[in-house]
Design a protein around this nucleic acid. Structure first.
Lengths: 242, 242
DNA sequence: CGGGTGCTTGAGTAACGTCAATTTCGGTGG
DNA sequence: CCACCGAAATTGACGTTACTCAAGCACCCG
């Protein structure tokens, strides 16, 4: 189910300058009068359906993508053929940074639900960043943030009890909700239990058991993919005891 | 045991143009005649002793570092205070990319043995990269490679048998030895079993047991920190069965 | 209304961690 | 050069966590 991103500029419903996500995306790097130049290279097209492929490992690297709505997971394939989910991306976040400087995409990106994206052709962005030092600096910053977020995941995935891992992931989602000025205690979890398990290095049954356990503790309330944080303090304690 | 890196330019034993590591470090981004400009900003000083701190989490971010000889580990500290080793760095590799764009270092870097480094002040590098498109592109490439290498580690640290993790790490070291035109079957492992375990999410005893098991299988020969690969094919199979 | 997918729950087990004892190694000073 | 000390590594016995296998339930979509 590959989605082709030809005619990237066909629909332009929303401009960066009007986008609710612009404080956490690329625009902060540019003055208002320069935003048009960014606008000119960005492509927007119809949303990708749930399960649709944004880009696939090995295909030609052309653009990085900003998530506008919905959510994306990225996976890489290990030598024995099993897929490892390397990240989840929510609105305002940038996907594809791991492929910069390469001919082909180094991971596969899949929509977790109907997802709208802005395509940013990298060659044009690099060209633009040559004229705008702040933009170039911002790209550096985005990439180093990606490295750090991977390090946080490594901490989480390391030798730690499963409950800590799950609590930490929930808190990470909550923090990212807050960045977008959404209620941080009402988390929509668009990915399956299997995806969460894969990402954290746990069996999907373990994830499920931990959700019910947290619910029994009165820390969260689980309703399918909707999770409400009832006791934030306690959840923090579960994520990092002592 | 903090090492102060004042007087960065005091000793300049080796120039980039003569350095054996230059094919895998920064220089490939620049033409020979531009290499002098890079040379001018690079600082080299006396080696850091085993256990010495190259930079510490929270201190002022000033430079990224190329490992010249020896080896470096980088750690980040989790909320509950435990340290997680996020990477090992061998000669020719660049440390500190995760802090780019930030005021302070976002991890701590420690020498695993006596280690010589080249300090590359980032502000000056960024300035230089403004004039040399290829250098800017190379920095992008380095950073995206760092992201990908983190993804590989995540794969390894995920839900996989301990033997696969250890075999994969050994192969990663072997590959990096080969890049430097060293014998890929004769691996010097500068870090402790505890460091390896921390990095892979295993107990140090488990690492030790697996080394002896691999030895019993005739795949490797362990002699303290010196490991010889006797059967590369079999080691590959252990890393990724099927 | 049916079928399928995803989620939950349970029982048994294997893999790995913890604790503890011993050996080896590397560095230091006599 | 050798003896000594402490740190690191090895090995063993035991316990626990989380995985596997399996069955049943809930929900979504057509």
């Amino acid at each position: 189910m590959d989605i082709k991103h030809l005619n990237l500029r066909e629909s332009r419903a929303v401009h960066c300058s009007e986008c609710a996500l612009n404080p956490i995306c690329l625009p902060p790097a540019l003055a208002d009068e320069d935003l048009d130049q960014l606008e000119n290279i960005i492509g927007r097209n119809r949303p990708i359906p749930r399960g649709g492929v944004l880009f696939r490992y090995g295909s030609q690297f052309e653009a990085i993508y900003a998530v506008r709505s919905g959510a994306i997971k990225t996976c890489s394939i290990s030598a024995n053929g099993e897929e490892q989910i390397t990240g989840f991306y929510f609105p305002g976040e940038i996907v594809g940074l791991d492929s910069i400087g390469h001919q082909t995409y180094e991971s596969t990106a899949i929509a977790l639900e109907s997802t709208a994206i802005c395509a940013i052709p990298f060659e044009a962005l690099e060209e633009l960043s040559r004229k705008h030092t702040t933009l170039n600096h911002h790209i550096f910053k985005l990439m180093s943030s990606e490295i750090r977020s991977d390090h946080q995941i490594m901490q989480m995935a390391g030798k730690r009890p499963a409950e800590e891992k799950v609590a930490t992931l929930l808190l990470s989602f909550a923090t990212r909700y807050k960045r977008r000025n959404l209620c941080e205690d009402n988390i929509h979890v668009p990915m399956s239990r299997a995806d969460i398990g894969n990402h954290l290095g746990l069996a999907l049954e373990t994830v499920s058991r931990i959700f019910t356990h947290f619910q029994e503790l009165g820390v969260i309330s689980v309703n399918g993919k909707q999770i409400t944080v009832l006791n934030r303090k306690e959840l923090l304690a579960l994520a990092a005891p002592c």
